[in-house]
Design a protein around this nucleic acid. Structure first.
Length: 251
DNA sequence: GTTGAGCGTT
């Protein structure tokens, strides 16, 4: 009953969802919980994070138990400087399931809605987060800015002169994060339920240990050469039956 | 290490 997290939200029956925008990227639910809990009874605080990097997106969802408290929080916390950034508190417009929300509170399930609001969708939200597998680097920021310009500048001539054939598979490296520290109290690190709170709130070093394995990170050329070498060494006969007829380059 | 309109769950 008190343990949720197996299937998403704990209980969104009589709770009002508030959308917190403009929050710092380092702000966590633990920092927003006491802030919002001071104005009312916070049921849960959820901060959507990126699936690729795992960083916060910059907004959070605070679920209140009563609308009056939520309204108060919006009026009080809206415009408050948190972590050095002004946050924006407002009622959630959409539900977790894209359902209809009334003042942050879920009006009714989609089943009862039938197809009433089906014809009303003139605003297709383009969520270019991770389409499927073609998730590129456009994301929500970082891409559009000076970075692109700089990149373009560098790519003006470097990009074009990419030397010989360049294998278009740079994102093939699946270097997993080195499981150095596994004592992460925060299992979800996103949903705060005022339940499990680590007494040791030391400064979580953002250093995610970017353990990049240079072995697999080596250029394909080197690997290719090595493989080629090995292949050649594997067939010192001078005539590898494998290569007989099937040459790497079919002219 | 970076960024800043928006709407959500391991």
């Amino acid at each position: 009953m008190s343990h949720f997290g197996r299937s998403g939200p704990p209980d969104i029956a009589d709770t009002y969802s508030l959308l917190i925008l403009n929050i710092s990227f380092r702000t966590s639910a633990d920092d927003l919980f006491p802030l919002f809990d001071k104005y009312g009874k916070v049921v849960d605080v959820f901060i959507p994070r990126d699936r690729r990097t795992g960083e916060s997106r910059g907004f959070a969802f605070v679920r209140y138990k009563y609308a009056d408290e939520a309204q108060k929080a919006v009026d009080k916390l809206d415009g408050r400087v948190v972590d050095g950034r002004e946050i924006g508190v407002q009622f959630a417009k959409y539900g977790p399931n894209a359902e209809r929300i009334d003042k942050g509170k879920i009006a009714e399930p989609v089943s009862k809605m039938r197809r009433r609001s089906r014809s009303r969708s003139p605003r297709p939200r383009y969520r270019d987060e991770y389409r499927d597998r073609d998730y590129r680097r456009r994301s929500r920021s970082r891409s559009s800015g000076r970075y692109d310009r700089d990149k373009y500048r560098d790519g003006g001539r470097s990009y074009r002169h990419r030397s010989r054939s360049y294998s278009p598979s740079p994102d093939r490296r699946r270097d997993r994060r080195a499981p150095k520290h596994d004592d992460e109290d925060r299992s979800r690190s996103g949903s705060y339920t005022s339940s499990s709170r680590s007494p040791q709130k030391a400064k979580y070093e953002r250093s995610r240990s970017p353990n990049q394995r240079p072995s697999t990170l080596e250029s394909p050329d080197v690997r290719n050469g090595e493989r080629d070498s090995q292949l050649q060494r594997d067939a010192p006969s001078g005539r590898p039956a494998n290569s007989a007829g099937a040459s790497p380059r079919s002219p």
